[in-house]
Write a protein that binds this DNA or RNA. Sequence first.
DNA 1: TCACTATAGTTGAGCACTCAAGATCAGAGG
DNA 2: CCTCTGATCTTGAGTGCTCAACTATAGTGA
Lengths: 167, 167
Amino acid sequence: MDHTRWLDDHEQETWRAFLTANRLLFERVERQLQNEARMPHAYYEILVRLSEAPDRTLRMSRLADTSLSSRSRLSHAVARLEQAGWVERTACETDRRGAWARLTDAGQAALEAAAPGHVETVRSVLFDALTPAQVTALNEISVALVDHLVDAPVWPAENDRDCPEAG
Amino acid sequence: MDHTRWLDDHEQETWRAFLTANRLLFERVERQLQNEARMPHAYYEILVRLSEAPDRTLRMSRLADTSLSSRSRLSHAVARLEQAGWVERTACETDRRGAWARLTDAGQAALEAAAPGHVETVRSVLFDALTPAQVTALNEISVALVDHLVDAPVWPAENDRDCPEAG
DNA sequence: TCACTATAGTTGAGCACTCAAGATCAGAGG
DNA sequence: CCTCTGATCTTGAGTGCTCAACTATAGTGA
């Protein structure tokens, strides 16, 4: 009983090209940041989200959401960033379980130092390769994917543990 | 002197949507394979490449290229896959530096067991979200990116160490 | 007041990856 | 033959991630 909806040739080709493009692209981005700014891309994003927040401060949980990070991952990351002197954690007074993360001046400086090289890399690996129409298409495709993936069930089949409305 | 070609709003939005879509998408793919087949996506790809090769056998270096893996990464990965009994390494007789990697019957079986769930996931996270026109557009965009990134200089600026023709 | 449940965040173990360095061998040139 | 360059593949250390388990506090309802 093979109900699998296999990929046809066109889909297969698309998936592999998509995979390859992604690997190559993010490898470049990651390497550039690691070499010139001594931080992985995930950390860069955390610094960006903090820099955009009022008082450069966010609750850990909000920061996790906006930087597309799991709680655990963020905890580990912020521990490292704190060690580097780029972020500070302070206790939250209204909710004593919580914690604030604040971007320090040193962190802001590190971000500003890293930004030009990073942006240049993003442009050179992505936008320089595409026509304006393709950029627009990529935008629409990405938005469609995000809409489709956000809040969608993580496990299409199986794993409907204690979710009565599943299935 | 700020020559940085910053991203305009449209580019910024596109980049962030692209990033978000990628994170969400590959997180699903990775999780599904890890949970249902006990292997990361990179290992799955290695098994696929081997399964498509004559005699299910490839030189390590070719396997590294086709699976978009660094030599080091492949060495570590194949060591693990060998431990699992899914791949075998044998010495190459014509080039005694080299090594062959062969997909075992157990490896083929593991791959066949993993494939339906993986393909179903790929379909559900990617193709189900897109119109046929968008799939075609994504294909063209991906191919353009791959063409642009393959054999392009890794470090646009700097790092022209011993490459006399750089610059 | 007293559970009970949910939320916020951390921690440690295990694993995959990167980087740099090394061991081994092939091929080319003197 | 012998050296030199380059290719093949491996190894070990360091790092960031995931997962599961944990602590601590908030909120809810009897």
